[in-house]
Design a protein around this nucleic acid. Structure first.
Ligand code: MN
Ligand code: MN
Ligand code: ZN
Ligand code: ZN
Lengths: 137, 137
DNA sequence: TCGTTACTGCAAGTGGATTGCACTTACCAT
DNA sequence: ATGGTAAGTGCAATCCACTTGCAGTAACGA
């Protein structure tokens, strides 16, 4: 079941703008903020409103097709396609803002410890590193 | 050197409002958002502007007297006193919003691995768990 | 006590994100 | 293929956390 089918199967529709949003996300090498995505769409001459970008991102997130990252140092949110890639985290350069995947999650084992210690039922976690990338050192 | 001295030593002044902000933070069992802190101050009949709360928090953070948490799921920031307590992380209840300390950091060992893999120089990290607390399960 | 300058309050401004509503369009049933 | 319905869109307004400008206030060292 590809992205198109996923959308249709949920009762959503595949529209001109939704296709364009997905296309930009699929081609991006790094997670995009709504504003960046909007700028990309303008560059590709796609007539779309920023609100529509936001609403599509919400929908795609609800469908589990994109992941929302909260790189809160930035005061904005970013999205990346979920397809294929597994759960992972990111590191962000404090100087140039570059964001790189960390293909690991060291926290799976920790959940049991936390649940025992706090009596919470652990759901999600967010983890983000920041530092200086090779170019900016 | 206590909090008062730290402030004075840096050329800052110990004002009525700053004392009040510190007092509320010191008595809180959990990290406070600027708005919550402001509400607490009102309850204690402290005449203060929300802007002054914000500015004091910035100052106290710069002095290293408070730690700013970025529990980004909330869309707001929280502060807690730093005094004594060491680096740690938090878990937040998705239902009632309660925030609890996790007295551990599993990431120190990981820094070397990440630096080797990404060639970044790692600075900070932020880590936050969410789930359901005992009462909300 | 006085003068410097950190600090405060009030008002306005920013920027990311959300909401209301009328209009449009995808797409399923006929 | 067509038409009806409900999802989706654009535009404007709004929200909300947070910041900035500035004139007036007050901390505190000389
Ligand atoms: Mn990624
Ligand atoms: Mn804490
Ligand atoms: Zn993880
Ligand atoms: Zn840590």
């Amino acid at each position: 079941m590809d992205v198109n089918d996923e959308i249709r199967a949920s009762g959503k529709r595949m529209t001109r703008t939704r296709r364009a949003v997905l296309s930009v996300l699929e081609q991006s090498q790094y997670p995009l903020s709504p504003t960046e995505l909007y700028a990309q769409l303008k560059k590709h001459k796609v007539a779309i409103d920023l609100v529509t970008v936001y609403r599509n991102l919400v929908t795609l997130k609800e469908l589990g097709l994109v992941t929302q990252l909260e790189l809160h140092q930035e005061g904005q949110v970013r999205y990346e396609m979920r397809e294929g890639r597994q759960h992972h985290h990111h590191i962000r350069c404090k100087s140039c803002g570059r964001i790189v995947d960390l293909l690991l999650c060291p926290l799976k084992k920790l959940t049991a410890v936390i649940e025992k210690e706090t009596r919470f039922v652990v759901g999600d976690h967010s983890l983000e590193f920041s530092g200086w990338c090779p170019r900016c050192q």
